Amino acid sequence: MNMPIALPAAHQTLMFNEAAETAALVAGQFARNRETVAALASQLRASPPPFVATCARGSSDHAATYAKYLIETQLGIVTASLSPSIGSVYAAPLRLEGALFIAISQSGKSPDLLRNAEAAKAAGARVVALVNVEDSPLAQLADTVIPLGAGPEKSVAATKSYLASLAAIAQLVAHWKDEPGLLAALDTLPQSLGEAWNQDWSTLTDGLVDARNLFVLGRGLGLGAAQEAALKFKETCGLHAEAYSSAEVKHGPMALVGAGFPVLVFAQPDETGAGALAVADEFHARGAEVWVASARGASSTAPSSVQLPLAQAAHPALAPLLTVQSFYRAINALALRRGHNPDLPPHLNKVTETV
């Protein structure tokens, strides 16, 4: 006879307590990295790269999605994700002369990421490492290191290191653009993250206890948040979830959505928000269970979906960090409700060393 596994209380998990540290660590990160980031930004303004390439895996790659949209919307510089397999498996030479190569990693020691960073540097790219382990091999080979400063993260599910990655990207882009509004918004981010942590998303937790499948929708700056949420549903809750752009979901995947099918929508407080809300209304009208995280409130064109409260972002570009922070608290509780320990997902390790 199998004995039930004893689970901690929601506030006792490593995931809960590590995610709860985010506001304070981002404040420290901004203060510590300000001079390094400002110097790098000055160099990038003086000699703009022709394009930006990112390289990462897992949650760090979801941070890279955020980087793509933030750099392209704020700076107008094309940004693409470089598959780690290009350098490690295919060993294909790439033309990266003058490019900015951003490697994002918690451990800084995944072999495929290191090979790509080495290849990028050899090809003439400026290598910038966003890394949590400051004496890691990745940090040692980078031209510039922006430490995440998240400290030890013992839960297998990354939380504070992911948000620290987004914060580092936001700080770099704000200084690079040198735009007063975005720079001022950074100063308010730690307080806003604290407010986001205290939002009540219990309706989402209650509604997904018995779910088997789920779509998570975002768009633009919010797409990386949707990708991160879908990963966390699978990783911590054993719940199959897929992330889609709220535009792309209408190109086939929406055929699956109908009565009883759950959908979580992250609506950005920017030009993409109205479209996301319209999709939420359409799915709700078809009988789907829909939760909408939106600072703008519910759409008025159809019966209201379940609304999830969001902390107000001082700048739309920072909204994804607040959305994810509220989500982390909810997903920790959901994992426990579904009988899973979010700190110890089956078959997973903290560091995945792919080659």
Rank of each mutant, 00 (worst) to 15 (best):
H315E: 03
P180I: 13
V324R: 01
M15H: 05
H284P: 11
F327C: 00
A295C: 15
Q29T: 06
G287V: 09
G108M: 07
E153S: 01
S304R: 11
L208I: 04
N2C: 07
S300P: 06
D143K: 10
S299K: 12
A24E: 14
A298Q: 14
S304I: 10
A267P: 05
W201P: 03
G224S: 08
V127W: 00
Y69R: 04
A157R: 00
F266L: 11
H62P: 07
P342W: 00
V156N: 00
M3P: 11
A211G: 14
L223F: 11
V216N: 07
K232L: 01
F261C: 12
A6W: 13
E97F: 12
V306A: 11
R45W: 12
L221N: 12
S88C: 10
S110Y: 03
I86S: 14
F215S: 01
A184I: 01
K121H: 15
V216E: 14
V257E: 08
V156T: 10
G98D: 05
A255G: 09
M15Q: 08
Y328A: 00
P111Y: 01
V209L: 06
R329T: 07
A247P: 04
S161P: 04
S47V: 13
A24M: 07
A333F: 09
T301P: 05
A319V: 08
I5T: 15
L183M: 10
T323E: 09
E134A: 15
L223S: 03
A184T: 03
S88T: 12
V355R: 12
P4D: 06
L114S: 04
D112G: 01
Q268Y: 10
S245T: 04
R296V: 13
I169P: 01
Y69E: 07
V209T: 15
A226I: 01
T36C: 13
S59M: 02
A167Q: 02
E21S: 06
A317T: 03
E248S: 11
P50K: 03
L189Y: 02
L14N: 02
G218N: 07
V156E: 00
A293H: 07
I5M: 14
V279E: 05
A285P: 03
D187R: 09
L264N: 02
E353R: 13
L70W: 05
P49W: 05
P345H: 03
G224L: 05
E35Q: 15
E282V: 14
Y162H: 12
L186Q: 00
N33C: 15
I77L: 06
A196E: 00
E118T: 15
V156Q: 04
G87L: 08
A157T: 07
L186H: 02
G260L: 08
S305M: 07
A211M: 10
L223M: 11
A276S: 13
